[in-house]
């Protein structure tokens, strides 16, 4: 699956069964991001497939 990390402006190819697993593998704290799949917000528990593209949006203030 593909994951775009907004804060780092980086696109990665990864394997993860759920949003939570994806964040764990990237060592990203779920309290600091929103997960977006096909332009829809998903909860970390949601299952992911190999063809999914997930955006990881940062929720922290920029300044």
């Amino acid at each position: 699956m593909k994951a775009f990390i907004e804060r780092e402006n980086k696109l990665l190819e990864l394997e993860a069964k759920t949003g939570k697993e994806l964040l764990d593998s990237l060592q990203i704290n779920p309290a600091t991001v929103l997960l977006v799949k096909n332009n829809e917000v998903i909860l970390p528990e949601e299952k992911l497939s190999e063809t999914d593209e997930v955006k990881i949006l940062s929720v922290v203030s920029g300044g």
Binding site: R7, L34, L57, G62, G63
Partner: peptide, 24 residues
């Protein structure tokens, strides 16, 4: 919270580009 605020702006479709202050 910040997370609720970001979720609100996303769901409302407000254009918010992630920009981080270089001094943060």
């Amino acid at each position: 919270s910040e997370k609720e605020t970001r979720l609100y702006t996303f769901l409302k479709g407000f254009k918010v580009n992630f920009a981080e202050c270089p001094n943060i």
